[in-house]
């Protein structure tokens, strides 16, 4: 499923472009010679909670800036909520709430005054309900008690919450949240997750970027993975997860016959020292690993076959590939940020 072209979503042929909250074609942003975003074709279905993953510097924020019309694309097209961006921003942006590269506020104004200010910038935001909307938005992110405090005196997590409050000042069809849990305590992180769930329950499409996979995995229905400006995978969470191979690992002193039995079941038995399945000696026993692949073999059947084949099974593990493994496999193991 690597960087598939936009269009019908896999497994759902009825889905048309009109069902996409965000759609890009060949979206590219170059800073000098470096392509920060390189020919990406995003397809974010309406109603989804879409995780936008990628390590530091992979181009997530740059993509979001282009989606919101803050930065112009070097090439490629963008449709957000069915309208062309940035040319139709008047129609699109009032329906979009956003948190881009962290919250930003006037430090000398209170939290409420800041929200008030940003709300006046939206010509479609009714002034009659402004005060009420500000108060409720603050309450929703747990800042009601700090509403009158100068933002300069807010903690990082409080600013982050205020940023989210700004994104939900009005009912939105689409939320774009760039690292919304950055700087939040575990409690705050959980609350943001439940907030996203409840907003999604109201029908809002949520596009949320993160480099913390564990956060995303729990709430997202879909995800895309960026790596050095390229979109290396996109699909539903299950599709992404199933990219990982299910493997079995047998601990036995009868290595040769175990290999024969596994092979006869159709499993691809790993040769010695394959990347993820080396044979390791442990006392008298050895391990053999094999990929189940696309076969529909049940674990208990494998064990039964091994035992029937005279293999003394001293250990048996089924390893479902985790999303984390996928993430690392797609984006590389290295710690260094790609320049």
């Amino acid at each position: 499923m690597s960087a598939e072209p936009p269009g019908p979503w896999p497994g759902d042929v009825t889905r048309s472009a009109g069902d996409l909250a965000i759609e890009t074609r060949g979206l590219t942003k170059r800073f000098g010679h470096q392509a920060a975003v390189d020919q990406i074709d995003l397809a974010v279905p309406r109603g989804s909670v879409f995780g936008f993953l990628g390590p530091n510097g992979s181009g997530k924020t740059t993509t979001i800036r282009m989606l919101l019309g803050l930065a112009s694309a070097s090439s490629g097209q963008i449709r957000v909520l069915g309208s062309e961006m940035p040319s139709e921003f008047h129609d699109v942006l009032p329906r979009v709430g956003a948190l881009v590269e962290g919250p930003a506020f006037y430090p000398f104004l209170s939290g409420a005054a800041n929200l008030h200010r940003l709300d006046t910038a939206d010509r479609q935001a009714p002034s009659a309900t402004r005060d009420a909307r500000v108060a409720e938005s603050l309450e929703r992110v747990g800042l009601a008690h700090a509403a009158g405090k100068r933002v300069g005196a807010y903690s990082l997590g409080m600013k982050q919450r205020l940023g989210i409050a700004n994104a939900i000042l009005r009912p939105r069809e689409l939320l774009m949240l760039d690292e919304p849990t950055n700087g939040l305590d575990p409690q705050g992180t959980r609350e943001v997750r439940s907030l996203i769930r409840s907003l999604s329950g109201d029908g809002t499409t949520v596009f949320v970027s993160s480099h913390l996979l564990a956060e995303i995995e729990q709430i997202c229905t879909h995800a895309a993975v960026m790596s050095t400006g390229r979109l290396v995978a996109q699909g539903t969470i299950d599709q992404l997860r199933s990219r990982g191979e299910t493997r079995v690992r047998v601990r036995t002193p009868d290595l040769p016959s175990a290999r024969v039995v596994l092979g006869s079941l159709g499993l691809s038995v790993d040769e010695v020292a394959r990347e993820r399945g080396e044979q390791i000696r442990s006392g008298e026993d050895e391990f053999v690993t094999a990929a189940v692949g696309v076969l529909d073999v049940r674990a208990e059947d494998i064990v039964a076959a091994l035992v029937a084949g005279g293999v003394r099974v001293r250990g048996f593990v089924v390893d479902e590939g985790s999303l984390e493994d996928q993430f690392v496999a797609l984006t590389g193991e290295g710690f260094d940020v790609a320049g």
Binding site: R133, E136, R170, E191
Partner: peptide, 29 residues
């Protein structure tokens, strides 16, 4: 953020109510 999921839901409900009366796609610029 409200402390409990229940409060959150209440806040959501209240907010949606306000939104419903306050805005619509018929934008008054």
């Amino acid at each position: 953020m409200p402390d409990s999921a229940g409060e959150l839901d209440k806040a959501t409900a209240r907010q949606s109510g306000n939104w419903a009366t306050g805005t619509g796609r018929v934008a008054r610029h």
